[in-house]
Computed example of a mutant assay.
Amino acid sequence: MNVLFLCTGNSCRSILAEATFNALAPAGMRAMSAGSQPAGYVHPRSLALLAREGIATEGVHSKSWNGLPHTPDLVVTVCASAAGETCPVYLGKVSRTHWGVADPARATGSDAEIDAAFEHAYRVLRARIEAFLALPGELARRDPVAFQSEVDRIGTLLP
């Protein structure tokens, strides 16, 4: 299964999700990330957080949703609509779900407060990824309606 984590800038949340998913997923499952308007860089705090968590970041970069290396089986948008962002819409006949997370790149305050925003985004995404990876392996193929219901439910989970 190929999962695409999609956001506008592809510099923070979708990068955190891609790297975390790939670190936790079993063989045969892979994540990609992309953006509708890629920032062209990965936020340094995202890279620092992933390094602290022991998650590899080699090859992770901000990229467009055009020319993905694989066709996704599931598209997960991670834009937080509460932050007033325009979430990209992936066109195609694939399962889609929304796992909104506030954008830590927009956090203000002290370094500790900004780091806490990145940590929170990471913890939310990791909890959701772990819940996704705990789903029965053949659920998407065996019962697409139940699969869709579960991935939508996972988008409401908080750590």
Results as ranks from 00 to 15, higher is better:
21 F>N: 09
132 F>Q: 11
91 L>S: 12
63 K>A: 11
28 G>W: 12
49 L>P: 00
79 C>E: 08
134 A>I: 02
150 E>C: 04
157 L>S: 01
149 S>M: 11
55 I>L: 13
108 T>H: 05
93 K>M: 13
39 A>I: 05
13 R>F: 00
17 A>E: 05
29 M>L: 14
9 G>N: 09
35 G>K: 10
36 S>V: 12
131 A>P: 10
142 R>S: 13
22 N>F: 01
132 F>I: 05
51 A>V: 10
26 P>Y: 14
13 R>D: 00
111 D>H: 06
91 L>I: 14
1 M>K: 00
113 E>H: 03
118 F>T: 03
85 E>K: 15
65 W>G: 08
4 L>R: 03
137 G>E: 08
133 L>W: 07
90 Y>K: 00
89 V>Y: 10
88 P>C: 06
118 F>C: 03
57 T>V: 12
127 A>M: 06
115 D>M: 00
43 H>T: 06
147 F>D: 00
73 D>Y: 11
6 L>Y: 06
7 C>Q: 06
112 A>K: 06
157 L>E: 00
99 W>G: 02
4 L>K: 02
60 V>H: 12
72 P>G: 08
51 A>T: 11
82 A>G: 11
38 P>S: 01
96 R>T: 13
48 A>C: 01
24 L>D: 03
109 G>L: 10
46 S>Y: 02
53 E>N: 08
22 N>M: 04
65 W>A: 11
96 R>N: 11
143 D>V: 02
60 V>T: 13
109 G>C: 04
108 T>S: 08
